[in-house]
Design a protein around this nucleic acid. Structure first.
Lengths: 158, 158
DNA sequence: TATTGTTATACTCTATAACTATA
DNA sequence: TATAGTTATAGAGTATAACAATA
């Protein structure tokens, strides 16, 4: 069909979508996201918001919905619904808080902990296998680039 | 200051969302996307799908909707609607094709070309200012990493 | 019978707003 | 009066499916 891609960096005043970093970032992020959400769903029965909540709660075991929202950058309604879904699946429990009755302390149930324990190595393995296609300087550059851009957009440090 | 945020590599069996590359990629991509779509909308009156179509058509001036869909990785209905919106704004024209009457040849109108000419330097400037927060090895690493991961996910080459 | 492109419809995702129960 | 969290509702955005015109 149409002869593809390039010889592109040639004209610096031309914009080729396929070389435009914001576009590439977006395209890559959705490919990665699709790839992983497929795994989370079929393998662990979790949607992405549920996955994020499970991981955040599992990481400190005992935190509020508000904390999850801030650290996973999710809207509180999204957190609330994910928590409800996880509760229904008996993976998470909502315990009353002693010092503030409006809050709920989120904790993994035993089966939530089991799922978490199975899920984490799996996710890390996926991450490793993604990054395995990079050599060391590339990997470092990518991570450093991510870090800088995150700072640029003030995404970290919640 | 090269103190990135880790202490996380400490326990390789722990998953911290803020260090998990797929999550970071996603979060960064949506921040960039939000940032740019705000500009496209307020400054040029374009939604992202329209922007992508405009850029793709402008780059070769004369292509079919199918080509746009393949090269910008958009669903054909999304292309169709973006083309309709751009046509309504008189930025694009649909011309009949000589060799296949099902196809339409998409071309920028004079005002579409003017918008394109204003938009491209602007977008490239934004890209440059994003990447300006990286030093040269980081920039190269990031780009190389993107390229490898794109290959991994078979995103290139339309 | 397959393909280009359009439209209608449905679905997913997410946010806004309104609410409750606290503080 | 403000906050934690929930729920109802509405709004994007996008895909599926049905369609018309052509190959």
């Amino acid at each position: 069909m149409v002869r593809p891609r390039k010889s592109a960096a040639a004209d610096p005043t031309a914009l080729r979508l396929e070389n435009f970093v914001p576009f590439r970032l977006n395209r890559l992020a959705s490919a990665v996201s699709e790839h992983l959400s497929e795994i989370y769903r079929t393998r662990f029965g979790l949607e992405i918001p549920e996955w994020r909540v499970l991981v955040t709660v599992g990481q400190r075991n005992d935190c509020t919905a508000q904390f999850v929202a801030a650290s996973a950058r999710m809207h509180k309604t999204r957190v609330s619904r994910a928590v409800a879904a996880l509760t229904k699946k008996k993976l998470i429990e909502r315990a009353a808080s002693a010092d503030d009755a409006r809050e709920r302390h989120l904790q993994l149930t035993p089966s939530g902990r089991r799922l978490y324990a199975a899920l984490v190595p799996f996710a890390l393995e996926r991450e490793r296998s993604l990054l395995a296609c990079l050599d060391e300087p590339q990997r470092r550059g990518l991570i450093a680039g991510l870090t800088r851009l995150e700072r640029f957009f003030k995404l970290t440090g919640v």
